[in-house]
Computed example of a mutant assay.
Amino acid sequence: MNRIFQRVLSCLLFALLSAGMLFMAPGCGKKGPPVLPTKAGDIPAAPTGLKYTLNGRDLTLTWTCASLQNQEHGPKVEGFEVFMATKPLDGCQGCPFMFKSLGVVSMPRKSFVYTLDQDLHYYFRVRTLGHDNIKSKVSDTLYIELP
């Protein structure tokens, strides 16, 4: 009887420890800074009308932003963040690619200059940065391939 009791007790202890490990596993243990709640009126509009001009391999990317027309009553625009993704010309069709931030353009500029390589497909996106680190959705993607 003593052995049965020990065996049941050890099984219960094992089950409790296992359950405890399962509850602790999903968290990464890192916390970020608190995020302020936002209303739809606080979020700036995403940039639209992405266009580019080429001067040799120097690309100038330009855009417009609806939030700039109503700076007195709407969300305050502080700048724009530019993202780029690239794929090799001989890369596979449908392969994933990752957008990386190229930097932030401060107001009142609405353009970004970048020198392109010859052997890549380029994809650009821009998002509006508002007051208190509030960010808009990203713009539509602009695809560029050098001739």
Rank of each mutant, 00 (worst) to 15 (best):
M1Y: 13
R3M: 13
I4F: 13
Q6K: 12
C11Y: 06
A15I: 01
L17I: 08
G20N: 13
F23Q: 10
A25S: 06
G27M: 09
K30S: 11
P33L: 04
P44N: 01
A45P: 01
T48E: 04
L50G: 00
L54F: 02
G56D: 07
R57N: 11
T60R: 11
W63C: 00
T64W: 00
T64V: 02
A66W: 00
L68Y: 02
N70K: 08
P75I: 11
K76L: 10
E78M: 11
E78V: 14
G79M: 01
G79R: 02
V82W: 04
F83Y: 12
L89T: 14
D90N: 12
D90H: 07
G91I: 06
G91K: 11
C92W: 15
G94Y: 08
K100C: 07
V105Q: 01
V105D: 02
S106V: 10
M107E: 10
S111L: 09
F112C: 02
V113P: 01
T115H: 07
L116V: 06
D119S: 04
D119P: 00
D119V: 02
Y123M: 13
Y123D: 15
F124N: 05
R127W: 03
G130K: 08
K137N: 12
D140T: 11
T141C: 12
L142H: 03
E145P: 07
L146M: 13
P147F: 03
P147M: 06
